[in-house]
Design a protein around this nucleic acid. Structure first.
Lengths: 241, 241
DNA sequence: CACGCAAAGTTGGAGTTCCAAATCTCCACC
DNA sequence: GGTGGAGATTTGGAACTCCAACTTTGCGTG
Protein backbone atom coordinates (compact mmCIF):
# COMPACT_ATOMS: atom_id res chain seq x y z
CA UNK A 1 0.00 0.00 0.00
CA UNK A 2 2.14 2.85 -1.22
CA UNK A 3 1.59 6.12 0.62
CA UNK A 4 1.44 7.76 -2.80
CA UNK A 5 -1.89 6.34 -3.91
CA UNK A 6 -5.20 8.10 -3.26
CA UNK A 7 -6.11 8.67 0.37
CA UNK A 8 -9.58 7.20 -0.10
CA UNK A 9 -7.89 3.91 -1.03
CA UNK A 10 -6.03 3.98 2.28
CA UNK A 11 -9.38 4.10 4.06
CA UNK A 12 -10.86 1.42 1.79
CA UNK A 13 -7.88 -0.89 2.27
CA UNK A 14 -7.93 -0.46 6.04
CA UNK A 15 -11.62 -1.20 6.44
CA UNK A 16 -11.55 -4.03 3.91
CA UNK A 17 -8.70 -5.65 5.79
CA UNK A 18 -10.67 -5.53 9.02
CA UNK A 19 -13.69 -7.08 7.33
CA UNK A 20 -11.90 -9.93 5.60
CA UNK A 21 -9.72 -10.82 8.58
CA UNK A 22 -12.78 -10.94 10.78
CA UNK A 23 -12.09 -8.13 13.21
CA UNK A 24 -15.25 -6.50 11.86
CA UNK A 25 -17.77 -9.36 11.77
CA UNK A 26 -20.99 -9.15 9.72
CA UNK A 27 -23.40 -6.64 11.21
CA UNK A 28 -20.71 -4.46 12.79
CA UNK A 29 -21.13 -0.74 12.32
CA UNK A 30 -18.61 1.10 10.14
CA UNK A 31 -17.56 4.58 11.34
CA UNK A 32 -19.76 7.32 9.93
CA UNK A 33 -18.55 9.89 7.43
CA UNK A 34 -17.86 12.37 10.20
CA UNK A 35 -15.96 9.80 12.24
CA UNK A 36 -13.91 8.68 9.24
CA UNK A 37 -12.79 12.23 8.46
CA UNK A 38 -11.53 12.57 12.02
CA UNK A 39 -10.05 9.07 12.32
CA UNK A 40 -8.10 9.14 9.07
CA UNK A 41 -7.63 12.88 8.79
CA UNK A 42 -9.27 13.05 5.36
CA UNK A 43 -12.01 15.21 3.88
CA UNK A 44 -15.68 14.41 3.53
CA UNK A 45 -15.21 13.52 -0.11
CA UNK A 46 -12.60 10.87 0.58
CA UNK A 47 -14.61 9.34 3.44
CA UNK A 48 -17.73 9.27 1.33
CA UNK A 49 -15.90 7.83 -1.64
CA UNK A 50 -14.38 5.07 0.46
CA UNK A 51 -17.82 4.05 1.74
CA UNK A 52 -19.15 4.07 -1.79
CA UNK A 53 -16.41 1.80 -3.05
CA UNK A 54 -16.91 -0.67 -0.21
CA UNK A 55 -20.64 -0.64 -0.92
CA UNK A 56 -20.03 -1.31 -4.61
CA UNK A 57 -17.81 -4.22 -3.64
CA UNK A 58 -20.69 -5.65 -1.65
CA UNK A 59 -18.75 -5.62 1.62
CA UNK A 60 -20.94 -3.12 3.46
CA UNK A 61 -24.47 -1.76 3.23
CA UNK A 62 -25.71 1.69 4.14
CA UNK A 63 -28.97 2.30 5.96
CA UNK A 64 -30.28 5.84 5.66
CA UNK A 65 -30.41 7.57 9.01
CA UNK A 66 -28.57 4.78 10.75
CA UNK A 67 -25.13 4.00 9.36
CA UNK A 68 -23.06 1.60 7.32
CA UNK A 69 -22.73 -2.00 8.44
CA UNK A 70 -20.68 -4.99 7.41
CA UNK A 71 -22.92 -6.91 5.08
CA UNK A 72 -24.27 -10.26 6.19
CA UNK A 73 -22.92 -12.59 3.53
CA UNK A 74 -25.72 -14.97 2.64
CA UNK A 75 -24.70 -18.61 2.47
CA UNK A 76 -24.00 -19.87 -1.04
CA UNK A 77 -26.72 -22.46 -1.58
CA UNK A 78 -25.74 -25.26 -3.94
CA UNK A 79 -27.72 -25.80 -7.12
CA UNK A 80 -26.98 -29.28 -8.42
CA UNK A 81 -27.20 -28.80 -12.13
CA UNK A 82 -27.41 -32.38 -13.41
CA UNK A 83 -28.72 -34.37 -10.52
CA UNK A 84 -32.35 -33.64 -11.32
CA UNK A 85 -32.12 -33.08 -15.04
CA UNK A 86 -35.31 -34.90 -15.95
CA UNK A 87 -37.31 -32.91 -13.50
CA UNK A 88 -39.70 -30.22 -14.55
CA UNK A 89 -38.05 -27.71 -12.26
CA UNK A 90 -34.59 -29.04 -11.48
CA UNK A 91 -34.07 -26.34 -8.97
CA UNK A 92 -37.08 -27.23 -6.83
CA UNK A 93 -35.50 -30.24 -5.15
CA UNK A 94 -32.44 -28.22 -4.22
CA UNK A 95 -34.39 -25.29 -2.91
CA UNK A 96 -36.73 -27.42 -0.88
CA UNK A 97 -33.85 -29.37 0.63
CA UNK A 98 -32.79 -26.01 2.07
CA UNK A 99 -36.08 -25.76 3.93
CA UNK A 100 -37.41 -23.14 1.54
CA UNK A 101 -40.76 -23.36 -0.23
CA UNK A 102 -40.24 -23.49 -3.99
CA UNK A 103 -42.84 -22.08 -6.36
CA UNK A 104 -42.74 -20.91 -9.94
CA UNK A 105 -44.86 -19.52 -12.67
CA UNK A 106 -44.39 -19.12 -16.37
CA UNK A 107 -45.88 -17.72 -19.52
CA UNK A 108 -45.40 -19.22 -22.95
CA UNK A 109 -45.89 -17.18 -26.09
CA UNK A 110 -44.92 -17.30 -29.76
CA UNK A 111 -41.88 -15.24 -30.71
CA UNK A 112 -39.47 -14.77 -33.57
CA UNK A 113 -35.85 -15.82 -33.26
CA UNK A 114 -33.31 -13.09 -32.56
CA UNK A 115 -29.95 -13.48 -34.30
CA UNK A 116 -28.44 -14.84 -31.10
CA UNK A 117 -31.14 -17.42 -30.44
CA UNK A 118 -31.32 -18.40 -34.11
CA UNK A 119 -27.60 -19.14 -33.98
CA UNK A 120 -27.93 -21.17 -30.82
CA UNK A 121 -30.76 -23.28 -32.25
CA UNK A 122 -29.23 -23.37 -35.75
CA UNK A 123 -32.33 -21.84 -37.25
CA UNK A 124 -32.87 -19.05 -39.71
CA UNK A 125 -33.30 -15.58 -38.36
CA UNK A 126 -36.87 -14.74 -37.44
CA UNK A 127 -37.82 -18.42 -37.43
CA UNK A 128 -40.96 -19.02 -35.36
CA UNK A 129 -40.28 -20.03 -31.77
CA UNK A 130 -42.08 -20.72 -28.57
CA UNK A 131 -40.65 -18.54 -25.83
CA UNK A 132 -41.42 -19.43 -22.23
CA UNK A 133 -40.49 -17.12 -19.39
CA UNK A 134 -40.21 -18.64 -15.93
CA UNK A 135 -39.90 -16.95 -12.57
CA UNK A 136 -38.76 -19.30 -9.83
CA UNK A 137 -39.34 -18.26 -6.26
CA UNK A 138 -38.05 -19.34 -2.86
CA UNK A 139 -40.51 -18.49 -0.10
CA UNK A 140 -42.25 -16.21 -2.59
CA UNK A 141 -39.17 -14.15 -3.48
CA UNK A 142 -37.85 -14.45 -7.05
CA UNK A 143 -34.50 -16.24 -7.10
CA UNK A 144 -34.15 -17.39 -10.69
CA UNK A 145 -35.26 -16.02 -14.04
CA UNK A 146 -35.33 -18.33 -17.01
CA UNK A 147 -36.25 -17.73 -20.62
CA UNK A 148 -36.55 -20.86 -22.70
CA UNK A 149 -36.73 -21.06 -26.49
CA UNK A 150 -37.76 -23.99 -28.65
CA UNK A 151 -38.75 -24.29 -32.31
CA UNK A 152 -42.44 -23.61 -32.77
CA UNK A 153 -42.87 -26.95 -34.53
CA UNK A 154 -42.79 -28.72 -31.16
CA UNK A 155 -46.11 -27.02 -30.60
CA UNK A 156 -47.80 -27.48 -27.25
CA UNK A 157 -45.75 -25.45 -24.82
CA UNK A 158 -45.77 -26.13 -21.11
CA UNK A 159 -49.24 -25.42 -19.79
CA UNK A 160 -50.92 -25.71 -16.46
CA UNK A 161 -52.64 -28.86 -17.72
CA UNK A 162 -49.53 -30.23 -19.38
CA UNK A 163 -46.68 -29.56 -16.99
CA UNK A 164 -44.46 -32.28 -18.39
CA UNK A 165 -40.71 -32.05 -18.57
CA UNK A 166 -39.00 -31.13 -21.79
CA UNK A 167 -37.67 -34.67 -22.22
CA UNK A 168 -41.18 -36.10 -21.92
CA UNK A 169 -42.79 -33.50 -24.19
CA UNK A 170 -40.25 -33.90 -26.97
CA UNK A 171 -40.31 -37.67 -26.89
CA UNK A 172 -43.91 -37.36 -28.10
CA UNK A 173 -42.40 -35.95 -31.29
CA UNK A 174 -39.92 -38.79 -31.56
CA UNK A 175 -37.13 -36.49 -30.44
CA UNK A 176 -34.77 -38.03 -27.92
CA UNK A 177 -32.56 -35.66 -26.00
CA UNK A 178 -29.02 -36.97 -25.77
CA UNK A 179 -27.02 -34.17 -24.22
CA UNK A 180 -27.30 -31.04 -22.13
CA UNK A 181 -24.68 -28.31 -22.43
CA UNK A 182 -24.44 -25.45 -19.98
CA UNK A 183 -22.25 -22.40 -20.51
CA UNK A 184 -21.69 -20.32 -17.40
CA UNK A 185 -20.55 -16.74 -17.22
CA UNK A 186 -20.98 -13.80 -14.91
CA UNK A 187 -22.10 -10.29 -15.70
CA UNK A 188 -23.64 -7.16 -14.28
CA UNK A 189 -27.42 -7.52 -13.92
CA UNK A 190 -29.64 -5.59 -16.28
CA UNK A 191 -31.83 -3.07 -14.45
CA UNK A 192 -34.90 -5.27 -14.92
CA UNK A 193 -33.09 -8.25 -13.42
CA UNK A 194 -31.70 -6.22 -10.57
CA UNK A 195 -35.25 -5.21 -9.85
CA UNK A 196 -36.92 -8.59 -10.23
CA UNK A 197 -34.32 -10.42 -8.14
CA UNK A 198 -34.00 -7.59 -5.57
CA UNK A 199 -30.22 -7.62 -5.94
CA UNK A 200 -28.14 -5.49 -3.59
CA UNK A 201 -25.69 -3.06 -5.19
CA UNK A 202 -22.54 -4.61 -6.54
CA UNK A 203 -23.89 -8.11 -6.92
CA UNK A 204 -23.35 -9.82 -10.25
CA UNK A 205 -25.51 -12.56 -11.69
CA UNK A 206 -24.58 -15.97 -12.94
CA UNK A 207 -25.86 -16.43 -16.46
CA UNK A 208 -26.28 -20.00 -17.61
CA UNK A 209 -26.88 -20.62 -21.28
CA UNK A 210 -28.33 -24.12 -21.45
CA UNK A 211 -28.91 -26.06 -24.65
CA UNK A 212 -30.58 -29.46 -25.01
CA UNK A 213 -29.33 -31.49 -27.94
CA UNK A 214 -30.89 -34.40 -29.80
CA UNK A 215 -27.86 -35.84 -31.53
CA UNK A 216 -26.28 -32.90 -33.28
CA UNK A 217 -29.46 -30.89 -33.41
CA UNK A 218 -30.19 -28.26 -30.76
CA UNK A 219 -33.84 -28.58 -29.72
CA UNK A 220 -34.12 -26.13 -26.84
CA UNK A 221 -32.04 -23.36 -25.37
CA UNK A 222 -32.50 -21.24 -22.25
CA UNK A 223 -31.01 -18.26 -20.52
CA UNK A 224 -30.95 -18.81 -16.79
CA UNK A 225 -30.18 -15.85 -14.53
CA UNK A 226 -29.24 -16.46 -10.90
CA UNK A 227 -28.16 -14.04 -8.14
CA UNK A 228 -24.42 -14.46 -7.79
CA UNK A 229 -24.32 -13.77 -4.07
CA UNK A 230 -26.65 -16.56 -3.00
CA UNK A 231 -26.00 -19.58 -5.16
CA UNK A 232 -23.24 -21.77 -6.40
CA UNK A 233 -23.62 -24.16 -9.29
CA UNK A 234 -22.55 -27.75 -8.69
CA UNK A 235 -21.40 -29.88 -11.61
CA UNK A 236 -20.18 -33.41 -11.07
CA UNK A 237 -18.55 -35.63 -13.62
CA UNK A 238 -17.85 -39.34 -13.17
CA UNK A 239 -14.55 -40.60 -14.59
CA UNK A 240 -14.57 -44.04 -16.12
CA UNK A 241 -11.15 -44.99 -17.37
CA UNK B 1 -38.05 5.77 -15.12
CA UNK B 2 -39.90 7.98 -12.68
CA UNK B 3 -38.93 11.63 -12.90
CA UNK B 4 -38.67 11.58 -9.12
CA UNK B 5 -35.56 9.46 -8.87
CA UNK B 6 -32.05 10.95 -8.73
CA UNK B 7 -30.98 13.00 -11.73
CA UNK B 8 -27.71 11.13 -12.06
CA UNK B 9 -29.75 7.99 -12.69
CA UNK B 10 -31.50 9.74 -15.55
CA UNK B 11 -28.11 10.30 -17.15
CA UNK B 12 -26.99 6.75 -16.40
CA UNK B 13 -30.18 5.25 -17.80
CA UNK B 14 -30.01 7.33 -20.95
CA UNK B 15 -26.40 6.47 -21.74
CA UNK B 16 -26.86 2.84 -20.77
CA UNK B 17 -29.80 2.55 -23.11
CA UNK B 18 -27.75 3.92 -25.98
CA UNK B 19 -24.96 1.45 -25.26
CA UNK B 20 -27.11 -1.67 -24.96
CA UNK B 21 -29.28 -0.84 -27.97
CA UNK B 22 -26.18 -0.29 -30.06
CA UNK B 23 -26.52 3.38 -30.92
CA UNK B 24 -23.23 3.85 -29.06
CA UNK B 25 -21.03 1.00 -30.35
CA UNK B 26 -17.86 -0.08 -28.51
CA UNK B 27 -15.17 2.56 -28.77
CA UNK B 28 -17.57 5.49 -29.12
CA UNK B 29 -16.76 8.53 -27.01
CA UNK B 30 -19.13 9.44 -24.17
CA UNK B 31 -19.75 13.18 -23.64
CA UNK B 32 -17.31 14.74 -21.21
CA UNK B 33 -18.32 15.99 -17.77
CA UNK B 34 -18.64 19.52 -19.08
CA UNK B 35 -20.78 18.37 -22.01
CA UNK B 36 -23.01 16.24 -19.79
CA UNK B 37 -23.71 19.13 -17.43
CA UNK B 38 -24.85 21.20 -20.41
CA UNK B 39 -26.69 18.41 -22.24
CA UNK B 40 -28.71 17.19 -19.25
CA UNK B 41 -28.77 20.42 -17.27
CA UNK B 42 -27.20 18.83 -14.21
CA UNK B 43 -24.29 19.75 -11.97
CA UNK B 44 -20.76 18.48 -12.12
CA UNK B 45 -21.44 16.04 -9.29
CA UNK B 46 -24.29 14.33 -11.08
CA UNK B 47 -22.38 14.08 -14.36
CA UNK B 48 -19.33 12.75 -12.60
CA UNK B 49 -21.37 10.31 -10.56
CA UNK B 50 -23.13 8.99 -13.65
CA UNK B 51 -19.81 8.29 -15.36
CA UNK B 52 -18.54 6.58 -12.24
CA UNK B 53 -21.57 4.29 -12.07
CA UNK B 54 -21.27 3.34 -15.74
CA UNK B 55 -17.58 2.64 -15.19
CA UNK B 56 -18.35 0.44 -12.19
CA UNK B 57 -20.84 -1.45 -14.34
CA UNK B 58 -18.08 -2.13 -16.81
CA UNK B 59 -19.91 -0.40 -19.66
CA UNK B 60 -17.41 2.42 -20.21
CA UNK B 61 -13.78 3.14 -19.48
CA UNK B 62 -12.14 6.49 -18.76
CA UNK B 63 -8.80 7.55 -20.17
CA UNK B 64 -7.18 10.44 -18.36
CA UNK B 65 -6.76 13.43 -20.63
CA UNK B 66 -8.82 11.89 -23.35
CA UNK B 67 -12.36 10.96 -22.34
CA UNK B 68 -14.74 8.13 -21.56
CA UNK B 69 -15.41 5.49 -24.18
CA UNK B 70 -17.80 2.58 -24.57
CA UNK B 71 -15.83 -0.41 -23.44
CA UNK B 72 -14.81 -3.03 -25.97
CA UNK B 73 -16.48 -6.15 -24.60
CA UNK B 74 -13.94 -8.93 -24.96
CA UNK B 75 -15.33 -12.13 -26.45
CA UNK B 76 -16.23 -14.77 -23.88
CA UNK B 77 -13.82 -17.58 -24.65
CA UNK B 78 -15.16 -21.03 -23.82
CA UNK B 79 -13.30 -23.17 -21.28
CA UNK B 80 -14.46 -26.76 -21.69
CA UNK B 81 -14.28 -28.05 -18.17
CA UNK B 82 -14.49 -31.83 -18.67
CA UNK B 83 -13.35 -32.42 -22.19
CA UNK B 84 -9.68 -32.50 -21.26
CA UNK B 85 -9.96 -33.69 -17.71
CA UNK B 86 -6.99 -36.05 -17.76
CA UNK B 87 -4.72 -33.39 -19.07
CA UNK B 88 -2.07 -31.77 -16.99
CA UNK B 89 -3.39 -28.32 -17.84
CA UNK B 90 -6.95 -28.75 -19.05
CA UNK B 91 -7.10 -25.15 -20.03
CA UNK B 92 -4.14 -25.28 -22.42
CA UNK B 93 -5.99 -27.01 -25.24
CA UNK B 94 -8.80 -24.48 -25.06
CA UNK B 95 -6.51 -21.48 -24.94
CA UNK B 96 -4.36 -22.72 -27.79
CA UNK B 97 -7.40 -23.43 -29.94
CA UNK B 98 -8.07 -19.72 -29.66
CA UNK B 99 -4.73 -18.99 -31.30
CA UNK B 100 -3.17 -17.93 -28.02
CA UNK B 101 0.09 -19.25 -26.65
CA UNK B 102 -0.53 -21.01 -23.35
CA UNK B 103 2.13 -21.13 -20.66
CA UNK B 104 2.07 -21.70 -16.95
CA UNK B 105 4.27 -21.95 -13.92
CA UNK B 106 3.73 -23.22 -10.44
CA UNK B 107 5.29 -23.61 -7.02
CA UNK B 108 4.55 -26.47 -4.67
CA UNK B 109 5.18 -26.16 -0.96
CA UNK B 110 4.12 -27.82 2.27
CA UNK B 111 1.26 -26.13 4.12
CA UNK B 112 -1.14 -26.78 6.95
CA UNK B 113 -4.85 -27.17 6.28
CA UNK B 114 -7.05 -24.17 6.96
CA UNK B 115 -10.49 -24.94 8.44
CA UNK B 116 -12.04 -24.53 5.00
CA UNK B 117 -9.62 -26.81 3.18
CA UNK B 118 -9.64 -29.35 5.99
CA UNK B 119 -13.40 -29.55 5.64
CA UNK B 120 -13.23 -29.96 1.88
CA UNK B 121 -10.66 -32.75 2.12
CA UNK B 122 -12.28 -34.27 5.23
CA UNK B 123 -9.07 -33.93 7.18
CA UNK B 124 -8.30 -32.65 10.65
CA UNK B 125 -7.47 -29.01 11.00
CA UNK B 126 -3.80 -28.23 10.49
CA UNK B 127 -3.27 -31.58 8.76
CA UNK B 128 -0.16 -31.49 6.56
CA UNK B 129 -0.84 -30.68 2.92
CA UNK B 130 0.95 -30.00 -0.29
CA UNK B 131 -0.16 -26.67 -1.68
CA UNK B 132 0.58 -25.88 -5.31
CA UNK B 133 -0.01 -22.45 -6.77
CA UNK B 134 -0.35 -22.17 -10.52
CA UNK B 135 -0.40 -19.11 -12.71
CA UNK B 136 -1.72 -19.81 -16.20
CA UNK B 137 -0.93 -17.33 -18.92
CA UNK B 138 -2.22 -16.62 -22.39
CA UNK B 139 0.35 -14.86 -24.52
CA UNK B 140 2.27 -14.15 -21.33
CA UNK B 141 -0.58 -12.43 -19.51
CA UNK B 142 -2.02 -14.16 -16.42
CA UNK B 143 -5.53 -15.42 -17.11
CA UNK B 144 -6.12 -18.05 -14.45
CA UNK B 145 -4.95 -18.48 -10.87
CA UNK B 146 -5.21 -21.90 -9.30
CA UNK B 147 -4.32 -23.12 -5.84
CA UNK B 148 -4.41 -26.87 -5.42
CA UNK B 149 -4.34 -28.79 -2.15
CA UNK B 150 -3.69 -32.47 -1.61
CA UNK B 151 -2.82 -34.50 1.49
CA UNK B 152 0.92 -34.50 2.14
CA UNK B 153 0.94 -38.30 2.17
CA UNK B 154 0.76 -38.32 -1.63
CA UNK B 155 4.28 -36.94 -1.42
CA UNK B 156 5.96 -35.95 -4.66
CA UNK B 157 4.18 -32.85 -5.85
CA UNK B 158 4.24 -31.76 -9.45
CA UNK B 159 7.81 -30.88 -10.37
CA UNK B 160 9.55 -29.82 -13.50
CA UNK B 161 10.90 -33.33 -13.86
CA UNK B 162 7.62 -35.00 -12.95
CA UNK B 163 4.90 -33.02 -14.70
CA UNK B 164 2.36 -35.83 -14.67
CA UNK B 165 -1.35 -35.31 -14.31
CA UNK B 166 -3.05 -35.78 -10.98
CA UNK B 167 -4.74 -38.97 -12.18
CA UNK B 168 -1.39 -40.45 -13.15
CA UNK B 169 0.40 -39.37 -10.00
CA UNK B 170 -2.23 -40.72 -7.66
CA UNK B 171 -2.57 -44.03 -9.43
CA UNK B 172 1.02 -44.68 -8.31
CA UNK B 173 -0.41 -44.72 -4.79
CA UNK B 174 -3.19 -47.09 -5.80
CA UNK B 175 -5.70 -44.26 -5.67
CA UNK B 176 -8.14 -44.23 -8.54
CA UNK B 177 -10.04 -41.03 -9.12
CA UNK B 178 -13.69 -41.71 -9.84
CA UNK B 179 -15.34 -38.31 -9.90
CA UNK B 180 -14.67 -34.61 -10.34
CA UNK B 181 -17.01 -32.07 -8.75
CA UNK B 182 -16.88 -28.39 -9.61
CA UNK B 183 -18.75 -25.73 -7.69
CA UNK B 184 -19.00 -22.40 -9.48
CA UNK B 185 -19.73 -19.03 -7.96
CA UNK B 186 -18.93 -15.43 -8.69
CA UNK B 187 -17.46 -12.81 -6.42
CA UNK B 188 -15.56 -9.55 -6.29
CA UNK B 189 -11.85 -10.10 -6.88
CA UNK B 190 -9.48 -9.69 -3.97
CA UNK B 191 -6.99 -6.86 -4.48
CA UNK B 192 -4.19 -9.35 -5.15
CA UNK B 193 -6.28 -11.11 -7.80
CA UNK B 194 -7.36 -7.87 -9.38
CA UNK B 195 -3.71 -7.01 -9.64
CA UNK B 196 -2.42 -10.34 -10.90
CA UNK B 197 -5.14 -10.73 -13.53
CA UNK B 198 -5.11 -7.02 -14.52
CA UNK B 199 -8.88 -6.83 -14.11
CA UNK B 200 -10.67 -3.65 -15.17
CA UNK B 201 -12.89 -1.98 -12.58
CA UNK B 202 -16.22 -3.65 -11.99
CA UNK B 203 -15.24 -7.06 -13.29
CA UNK B 204 -16.05 -10.03 -11.08
CA UNK B 205 -14.22 -13.33 -11.12
CA UNK B 206 -15.55 -16.82 -11.55
CA UNK B 207 -14.41 -18.95 -8.67
CA UNK B 208 -14.41 -22.70 -9.29
CA UNK B 209 -13.95 -24.98 -6.32
CA UNK B 210 -12.91 -28.30 -7.81
CA UNK B 211 -12.59 -31.54 -5.87
CA UNK B 212 -11.31 -34.88 -7.13
CA UNK B 213 -12.86 -37.89 -5.43
CA UNK B 214 -11.66 -41.48 -5.13
CA UNK B 215 -14.87 -43.22 -4.16
CA UNK B 216 -16.16 -41.25 -1.22
CA UNK B 217 -12.79 -39.86 -0.28
CA UNK B 218 -11.72 -36.40 -1.48
CA UNK B 219 -8.11 -36.60 -2.64
CA UNK B 220 -7.50 -33.16 -4.09
CA UNK B 221 -9.23 -29.81 -4.07
CA UNK B 222 -8.46 -26.57 -5.90
CA UNK B 223 -9.58 -22.99 -6.03
CA UNK B 224 -9.60 -21.74 -9.60
CA UNK B 225 -9.99 -18.02 -10.22
CA UNK B 226 -10.90 -16.81 -13.70
CA UNK B 227 -11.65 -13.29 -15.02
CA UNK B 228 -15.40 -13.11 -15.42
CA UNK B 229 -15.33 -10.78 -18.41
CA UNK B 230 -13.29 -13.01 -20.71
CA UNK B 231 -14.30 -16.60 -20.15
CA UNK B 232 -17.31 -18.82 -19.97
CA UNK B 233 -17.27 -22.29 -18.51
CA UNK B 234 -18.72 -25.06 -20.64
CA UNK B 235 -20.16 -28.15 -19.01
CA UNK B 236 -21.73 -30.89 -21.04
CA UNK B 237 -23.64 -33.82 -19.77
CA UNK B 238 -24.73 -36.83 -21.85
CA UNK B 239 -28.16 -38.23 -21.06
CA UNK B 240 -28.58 -41.97 -21.23
CA UNK B 241 -32.13 -42.98 -20.53
C1' DC C 1 -43.08 4.15 35.12
C1' DA C 2 -44.47 4.65 30.36
C1' DC C 3 -44.96 7.29 26.49
C1' DG C 4 -44.20 10.61 23.02
C1' DC C 5 -41.68 14.05 21.01
C1' DA C 6 -37.68 16.82 19.98
C1' DA C 7 -32.87 16.98 19.06
C1' DA C 8 -28.89 14.92 17.27
C1' DG C 9 -26.73 11.98 14.10
C1' DT C 10 -26.50 9.62 9.55
C1' DT C 11 -27.08 8.53 4.66
C1' DG C 12 -27.52 9.97 -0.01
C1' DG C 13 -28.36 13.47 -3.52
C1' DA C 14 -26.61 17.63 -5.40
C1' DG C 15 -23.78 21.78 -6.20
C1' DT C 16 -19.18 24.34 -6.62
C1' DT C 17 -14.34 24.76 -6.77
C1' DC C 18 -9.31 23.75 -7.21
C1' DC C 19 -5.60 21.10 -9.03
C1' DA C 20 -2.24 17.52 -11.11
C1' DA C 21 -1.40 14.61 -14.80
C1' DA C 22 -2.36 13.02 -19.17
C1' DT C 23 -3.86 13.79 -23.84
C1' DC C 24 -5.22 16.13 -27.90
C1' DT C 25 -5.15 19.83 -31.38
C1' DC C 26 -3.39 23.03 -34.04
C1' DC C 27 -0.25 26.37 -35.43
C1' DA C 28 4.31 28.21 -36.21
C1' DC C 29 8.76 27.27 -37.41
C1' DC C 30 12.40 24.83 -39.70
C1' DG D 1 6.46 18.41 -45.58
C1' DG D 2 7.63 17.28 -41.07
C1' DT D 3 8.43 18.54 -36.18
C1' DG D 4 7.96 20.61 -31.85
C1' DG D 5 5.67 23.06 -28.58
C1' DA D 6 1.97 25.87 -26.51
C1' DG D 7 -2.56 25.96 -25.13
C1' DA D 8 -7.07 23.84 -24.51
C1' DT D 9 -9.56 19.62 -22.82
C1' DT D 10 -10.31 15.88 -20.00
C1' DT D 11 -10.04 12.63 -16.19
C1' DG D 12 -9.60 11.71 -11.38
C1' DG D 13 -8.50 13.10 -6.67
C1' DA D 14 -9.84 16.13 -3.10
C1' DA D 15 -12.09 19.75 -0.30
C1' DC D 16 -16.21 22.14 1.38
C1' DT D 17 -21.15 22.95 1.66
C1' DC D 18 -26.30 22.55 1.78
C1' DC D 19 -30.34 19.83 2.30
C1' DA D 20 -34.14 16.13 2.58
C1' DA D 21 -35.35 11.98 4.60
C1' DC D 22 -34.70 8.76 7.91
C1' DT D 23 -33.18 6.56 12.57
C1' DT D 24 -31.71 6.69 17.13
C1' DT D 25 -31.46 8.51 21.60
C1' DG D 26 -32.65 10.58 25.45
C1' DC D 27 -35.25 13.71 28.06
C1' DG D 28 -39.36 15.58 29.97
C1' DT D 29 -44.08 15.32 30.85
C1' DG D 30 -48.19 13.09 32.23
Amino acid sequence: MASSDPVYLRVVADIRRQIVDGSLPPGSPIPSRAQLTRKYGVGETAARHALRVLTAEGLIVGRVGSGHYVREQPALLPLHRWRFHDHHAPFAADIQSQGTRATWDWRAEPADATPDIAHRLRLDESAPLTRTRYVFRGDGKPIQLTTSYEPAEFGEPVTEENPRSLVARLSAFGVKITEVVEQVHTRVPQPAESDALALPAGVNVLHVERTHWAGDRPVETSDIVIPGDRFRLVYSHPLHP
